[in-house]
Computed example of a mutant assay.
Amino acid sequence: LHTDRGSQFRSRKFVHALHQHHMTGSMGRVGAAGDNAAMESFFGLLQNNVLDRRTWTTRQQLRTAIVTWIERTYHRRRRQRTLSRLTPIEYETTMTPPASQAA
């Protein structure tokens, strides 16, 4: 889970919750606003394209919708400027040697 350096993300209670859910925390460097830019962009897209579209009755429905959006739309259709206008899947295919793709 990537966060900024806010005190709420460094608290013992928050760190304990991360460990309970088998998650690892990471934080951006002090004064480096660009560290969080990519994640904030991603979460903004997720908010607009999944979370704000409807009300979810169960966590599992929401989880399925998020995973489906990431796998079908974000990774396969959304071209990204930092990847030379390729989708993440296109970039991985182009940049990964054929022997590695088979593994």
Rank of each mutant, 00 (worst) to 15 (best):
Q101D: 00
Q61W: 00
W56M: 09
D52R: 15
R5Q: 15
H16Y: 11
A102F: 00
T55S: 13
R76H: 09
S11V: 00
H2F: 12
E92Y: 01
R79E: 01
V15R: 12
T82L: 12
A102I: 09
A17G: 05
Q60N: 11
R76E: 07
G25A: 10
T82G: 04
R12F: 10
F14P: 04
Q8E: 11
T55A: 12
V67D: 11
K13P: 02
Q60E: 14
Q101P: 01
H2M: 11
L1Q: 02
N49G: 03
D4P: 08
H21Q: 14
F9W: 15
A65S: 08
F14L: 04
G25Q: 11
L45S: 14
S11R: 01
T93D: 05
Y74D: 00
S26C: 10
T57L: 14
G6L: 06
V67Q: 03
E40T: 01
G28H: 05
V50C: 05
A37R: 05
L45G: 10
G28R: 08
Q20S: 09
P97L: 10
A103C: 13
L83A: 03
P88H: 06
T68H: 13
Q101K: 09
T64V: 00
S100L: 14
V15E: 15
R81L: 12
Q61A: 15
H22N: 13
G25W: 08
L62K: 12
N48S: 15
V50Q: 10
F43N: 06
T24C: 11
G31T: 08
T73W: 12
T64C: 01
R81Q: 14
L18H: 08
T82F: 07
T94S: 09
H16M: 09
M95C: 13
H22M: 05
E40G: 11
R63M: 04
T73P: 04
R53F: 07
G6F: 03
